[in-house]
Each structure stands twice: as structure tokens, then as C-alpha cells.
């Protein structure tokens, strides 16, 4: 039984690896439709990755070992984070390895090396990207943890599987705290995955880019790993949002029908989330960098209100 369960962890990692480019393709496609374009084919992100894996890898003379190690660390830590988020079933043995605070830690580890890699070559753009990324993450992390604490205060656990179990067991309850935590987490996710209005994943305009500035010097398989890690991160946040706040449909047993329905449900929820993201990105414009703190302040405020309403309205005196 446990061996099967760990096989499931492996399966989930594969699903994440394969699904992440697909989610990106879906968002791009919906966005293209909204903007009256036809958009690229479904398989375009896969083809991009394949192409990059086959290309020669260039490394600047001035780069050190950190530059070459960073893509692997970023990729490994992001993938590891993905394995602890319940995707299709709650009965995930790896959820005990790392709770949600450790998950935040994994993402921070990846970001740390990403930012270091940006500074390694010694160009102005890399340093600029790193500086901005660290600013945004520094403001986003407390908001994310506050949102997570709101859940943990209700479920009395930071284990993601336990949180989802608690959610499923208590049925449909309209919790104001969950509403605020959800809104806060969505804003954090937007900031952390580098979407509009914080960062634009498609821009290469020198002075506005953040994530792209850090990976500017990468090429070949290093670049492919970085891109893949970014796609994984998007899917990770998506799964976190839909499965923690709207867990209905996720498999609670390790049977084939339960897993299959869990898979179908999570695909459906992610597709819906992708549409919302595409609509939001089409409607919004990118902010100036110094407006970003206000955006993240809002996220922090929402998370804080979530926590306060948990204390005031829900826990009872």
C-alpha cells in the first residue's frame, strides 16, 4: 500500500511536469482568442522546451559555478514543492514530508538561487531583475504566510492534506476568512508567478522586466530548465488555490475511480482558473514597479483581514 502511495507521488510529479506547459498553452490560447488572435498551437510550449534542450548551451566567461548550478536547484526545488501539494488525491504520503511552510521555503530556495544567478554574470540587467524580484518576494511572502495561517488556524494544521481533509469534512461553510485568504493568495500568486500587472511574462522591454532580466544570460538546456520551473510554479499556485479553497472532487481514497475523478475535477478547475487569469491579464495593464508594493500591501491587508475575521467572527469567544 505504501509503495503504491509513493508511486502515486511519482505519478503526480509526472503529471505536474507534463501539465505545466499545457496550462501555459491554455492561458496563452485563451488570451489570444480574447485579443482576436488565433494563437499558437497547443504543443508550442513543449516544442519550445524540446528545442531548447537540443540547443547548444552558452555560458558567459564571467559566470561562476553558481550560474551553472542554479537552473538545477531552481528546477529541483520547484518540482519538490509540486510533489507535496495534493493534486488528485488527499492521501499523499509526501504531504507529510513538508508542510505548507516548508513549501514556501522551497519556493524561497529556488528564488534565492534564481536571484543569485541573475547577479552572477555581472551585467546591469541581471542585478536589476534580482533586486526587483527580491523586493516583490519580500512583500509577497508575509502575505502568503498570513493567508496560509488563516487556513491553519481553522484546520489546526499546516499539513496541506489535513487542511483539505478538514475542508471536505466540514462541508460547505461560508467563511469570510477563507474568502479574504483566497483573494490575498490570488494576488500573491499573480505577483510570484510574474504575471500582469506585476511582471509581464512575454516582455523583453529592458526596463520593465523582472523574471526575464534574471534569466537573460541563460541559453540551451539551462534556459529550458528555468522556463520549465516557471511553468511548474504557475501550475503549483493554481493547484494550491483550487485544491485548498475548493477541494471538492479531489480523491479521498486510493482507488482508481476516485483518482480518475480527482484528475478530471482538477483539470476542470485549472482550465477555469486559466480562463480567469487570461481575462484578467487582457483587461489589466502592467504597473510601474513602485506601484507593486501597493498591490502587495493589498494582498497583505486581505490576508490580515482574513485572519482577523477568523478570530472575530469564526472562532467565537
Amino acid at each position: 500500500m505504501t509503495a503504491n502511495a509513493w508511486l502515486l507521488v511519482l505519478l503526480q510529479s509526472v503529471l505536474f511536469l507534463l501539465g505545466a506547459p499545457l496550462l501555459v498553452a491554455w492561458v496563452r490560447r485563451v488570451k489570444a482568442r480574447l485579443q482576436n488572435r488565433r494563437g499558437a498551437a497547443w504543443s508550442q510550449p513543449y516544442r519550445d522546451l524540446y528545442k531548447l534542450f537540443g540547443k547548444e548551451t552558452l555560458v558567459a566567461h564571467t559566470a561562476s559555478g553558481v550560474f551553472r548550478a542554479a537552473p538545477y536547484i531552481v528546477f529541483a526545488s520547484t518540482l519538490l514543492a509540486c510533489t507535496v501539494v495534493p493534486l488528485i488525491t488527499v492521501r499523499l504520503p509526501s504531504a507529510a514530508v513538508a508542510d505548507v511552510i516548508v513549501l514556501v521555503g522551497f519556493l524561497a530556495l529556488g528564488r534565492f538561487f534564481l536571484a543569485l544567478a541573475g547577479m552572477d554574470v555581472g551585467t546591469a540587467f541581471g542585478g536589476m531583475g534580482s533586486s526587483r524580484e527580491m523586493l516583490i518576494s519580500a512583500l509577497a511572502e508575509p502575505a502568503m504566510l498570513l493567508a496560509v495561517f488563516t487556513l491553519a488556524m481553522t484546520a489546526h494544521s499546516t499539513n496541506l492534506a489535513s487542511v483539505i481533509d478538514h475542508q471536505l469534512a466540514s462541508g460547505l461553510i461560508l467563511r469570510p476568512s477563507y474568502l479574504f485568504a483566497l483573494m490575498g493568495l490570488v494576488l500573491v500568486a499573480v505577483a510570484e508567478t510574474g504575471r500582469i500587472p506585476i511582471d509581464n511574462p512575454t516582455t523583453h522591454l529592458e526596463l520593465t522586466m523582472i523574471h526575464e532580466a534574471m534569466i537573460l544570460e541563460y541559453s540551451g538546456r539551462h534556459l529550458a530548465l528555468m522556463e520549465w520551473a516557471a511553468q511548474l510554479k504557475l501550475m503549483l499556485y493554481g493547484v494550491l488555490i483550487v485544491n485548498v479553497f475548493l477541494p471538492w472532487g479531489i480523491g479521498t481514497q486510493l482507488t482508481l475511480p476516485a483518482l480518475a475523478s480527482g484528475l478530471l475535477f482538477v483539470i476542470g478547475k485549472l482550465l477555469l482558473l486559466g480562463v480567469i487569469l487570461a481575462v484578467a491579464e487582457t483587461g489589466l495593464a502592467k504597473m510601474r514597479l513602485f506601484r507593486a508594493p501597493a498591490f502587495l500591501n493589498l494582498a497583505l491587508l486581505l490576508a490580515l483581514l482574513g485572519l482577523l475575521s477568523n478570530v472575530i467572527l469564526e472562532a467565537g469567544a
Binding site: 524561497a108 543569485l116 542585478g127 527580491m134 519580500a138 508575509p142 495561517f149
Partner: peptide, 26 residues
């Protein structure tokens, strides 16, 4: 706890700065 989280994230920013400026680059 949120202040602790902010502290941790800022510390990471600070040490990216230290390491990036002192040991990396030219």
C-alpha cells in the same frame, strides 16, 4: 508571525545582495 515571515524574506534579499555583490560578478 507575519513580521517574522517578512523578516525572513528580507534576510534572503539581503544575503542575495551580499553574496551577489561580493562573490559573484566581476
Amino acid at each position: 508571525a507575519a513580521m517574522l515571515a517578512l523578516t525572513g524574506a528580507l534576510a534572503a534579499a539581503c544575503f542575495v545582495k551580499v553574496y551577489g555583490v561580493a562573490f559573484l560578478g566581476q
